[in-house]
Design a binder for these strands. Structure first.
Length: 226
DNA sequence: TACCAGGAGAAAA
DNA sequence: TTTTCTCATGGT
């Protein structure tokens, strides 16, 4: 599939998902900093368990970097137990909070260009590409598309012959398909597109099931995988 | 009981 | 460089 056709197909996919599911109102959080916390807590974890962890943590300290840094590592881990991987995530959250405060918080980070900020986020222990892009898109309103396991699965079905599952390559495909839009429009579109892909994975193209009978994208989906 | 969930890092091959 | 292992709770 040539680049132009691929772009058109990704644009069609975004249009189909938007028609099928509409606005998803992501990211569910009361503050921008909660988005950052949630991005770490949700790593390989169902969101319902993240909500429990955030509720428990909020009962212990305000969801802000300094109070969280003031907690003992064990106390933080216990508070976020329900999100799973609690020892790892406690370490990651406090490391991230330390960087965030040293860097001057949102006031300073909002002034950093997107590529540099992404590099800084990826340099933090426990912040991989998906988590960094969650943060960039949903907390910093940067025009970055978040690739997840659902995205790989959906594009495999939708693009017929995807040449790669490489994170950066897939991210570049999707971002390139909307490069002519304004930054604000890209942020809005990537916000909904990622959320709608997650929504779609949950309600229709369930897991690895090859059955697309109830799929909202059935008409144009190239699925029909063996 | 087994599998999966809004991953990432370290170790092994 | 690529693959495999580990981390861990809660829902289905």
């Amino acid at each position: 599939m040539d680049t132009r056709a691929q772009r058109a197909r990704i644009q069609q996919l975004a249009s189909d998902l938007d028609a099928a599911y509409g606005p998803q109102h992501w990211w569910p959080a009361e503050t921008r900093f909660e988005v950052l916390l949630g991005a770490i807590l949700t790593q390989n974890t169902a969101w319902t368990n993240v909500e429990r962890a955030l509720k428990q943590l909020r009962a212990v300290v305000p969801l802000e970097p300094e109070p969280i840094l003031g907690l003992a590592r064990e106390a933080l881990a216990e508070a976020i137990r329900s999100a799973g991987y609690f020892n790892q995530k406690a370490l990651r959250i406090q490391g991230f909070c330390d960087w965030f405060t040293r860097r001057g918080g949102f006031a300073a980070l909002d002034l950093v260009d997107t590529a540099s900020l992404r590099g800084e986020l990826l340099a933090q222990h426990g912040i991989g590409p998906e988590t960094a892009d969650d943060m960039l898109l949903y907390a910093f309103a940067r025009p970055v598309f978040v690739v997840d396991a659902y995205t790989h699965r959906l594009l495999q079905r939708y693009l017929k012959h995807p040449p790669t599952r490489d994170y950066e390559t897939v991210r570049a495909w999707v971002e390139a398909a909307f490069v002519e839009r304004t930054t604000a429009a890209q942020v809005q579109l990537f916000n909904e597109l990622h959320a709608q892909i997650v929504r779609h994975a949950k309600v229709a193209c369930a897991k690895r099931s090859p059955d697309c009978a109830n799929c909202a994208l059935q008409k144009r989906c190239a699925q029909q995988l063996p």
